[in-house]
Nucleic acid binder design. Structure first.
Length: 110
DNA sequence: TCAATGACGTCTT
DNA sequence: TAAGACGCCATTG
């Protein structure tokens, strides 16, 4: 498990319930610009319990194959957090996580 | 080496 | 909006 994956998991764990982040956003916060695809791989390969459902594409859409097991699971989890989602998409305008930079500085040790 | 791959992102039509 | 074309980048065979 690479150090980068650990950094990604650290950021993902900071996303509060009811809020979401994009793959690219997580990558940036983890200090890995242009590494959105690495975030998706890290999530897919992780064994530990993570709020992976709070990560979406920059378009606000779920990236898993429509109708797949994971897709349905994600929709379910998001709705359970009171997030409105239609046709596999939600409003980033309404739900995207806007972390406070100062708070982040103290939560991340890198 | 090198081409293919992918839970992505940005731009253009 | 939607769909393509590209760009990007670590990983894989």
């Amino acid at each position: 498990m690479s150090h980068n994956y650990e950094k990604i998991y650290t950021v993902v764990k900071l996303i509060p319930a009811g809020k979401v982040a994009t793959y690219g956003q997580v990558a940036d916060l983890a200090g890995l610009p242009r590494r959105a695809r690495m975030v998706s791989k890290a999530l897919k390969e992780s064994t530990e319990s993570l709020p992976w459902h709070r990560i979406l594409a920059a378009s606000g859409k779920i990236s898993l194959p429509v109708g797949s097991e994971g897709y349905l699971e994600q929709v379910q989890r998001l709705r359970s957090e009171n997030i409105e989602i239609r046709n596999g998409r939600l409003s980033l305008q309404d739900y995207q996580w806007q972390p406070d930079p100062v708070e982040l500085l103290f939560r991340l040790d890198f």
